[in-house]
Design a protein around this nucleic acid. Structure first.
Lengths: 140, 140
DNA sequence: CCTGCATTCTTGAACGAGTCAAGTAAACAG
DNA sequence: CTGTTTACTTGACTCGTTCAAGAATGCAGG
């Protein structure tokens, strides 16, 4: 069990949050709370905040914050993958590391910084939203 | 005057905000407000929020929101440059487009998305914070 | 140089994601 | 089983940002 491996106590809320994130990537705290409550109706919102923070700190979960969105979480960690975000419907999909791999993740001039991660977000329109007159779902 | 070019009325608050951002890149709304008030003590915080939004919409200013930070603004626009952020002191510096240019800005699999922008944030430690025992300024 | 209207600014309240704090409950080492 | 440490519950609160109504200002046209 990954919780034990991270020296975290195994509790119902933690197991439930992990299960939710494995099923539903890029969920917001609120969405996680809602889904966790299907199984554990009594969990508090504070518990979910605490759990998400603990899991993030332990590296079992990754927190992302695309512009204009509240924090979202995903259970896919350790592979430094990136995200593609639709400007229209806010859909998020994972993309593997950009082509050419490593060279892309080095800034041209690092100004003396020791860089340990390159975070990439691709912005655009998803297939549904870029289709001329389909039943797109506009955000807002 | 860039304001006229963007079909925006020329007002004191707008001129002041633009001037501040040209001097101080990556300033928060609050920092902008403080600096603007040196010249125009009466401006309201709402005016600064409105101005920043108008300038951002007009493309005269760019809004960035690094993880864990409030919104920041910069007057350098149109060149899709990226940012290097220090995990320790939160310092932000600009970096030109990553090496190799264009190829880096194409996701390996676009899942049908029409991508129009690749936003890159490099995380690490600035020279001061990565120096062994200098007088680093920790954030927090 | 005026006039009038649309836009912008002032004032003050409200919103919402996230955090703090104190006390109760539960995990797990021994 | 017991005790201690770590989680969770409850409820208040912070802070960046937005909303709303009315006053002020920029500027096109006369």
């Amino acid at each position: 069990m990954s919780l034990r491996g991270a020296a975290l106590r195994v509790t119902r809320p933690r197991l439930a949050v992990l299960a939710v994130l494995r099923e539903h990537a890029h969920a917001t705290t609120d969405e996680v709370l809602g889904r966790v409550r299907v199984q554990l109706p009594e969990v508090s919102h504070q518990a979910v905040y605490d759990v998400l923070r603990a899991l993030t700190t332990a590296g079992l979960v990754r927190r992302i914050e695309p512009q204009g969105s509240v924090a979202r979480y995903e259970a896919r960690v350790g592979d430094n993958h990136h995200h593609l975000v639709c400007r229209s419907c806010a859909r998020i999909v994972d993309v593997d590391c950009v082509v050419g791999a490593a060279p892309c993740l080095t800034p041209s001039a690092s100004h003396g910084f020791t860089v340990d991660e390159a975070e990439v977000v691709f912005w655009g329109l998803c297939p549904q939203c870029s289709a001329p007159s389909s039943d797109r779902k506009e955000v807002l």
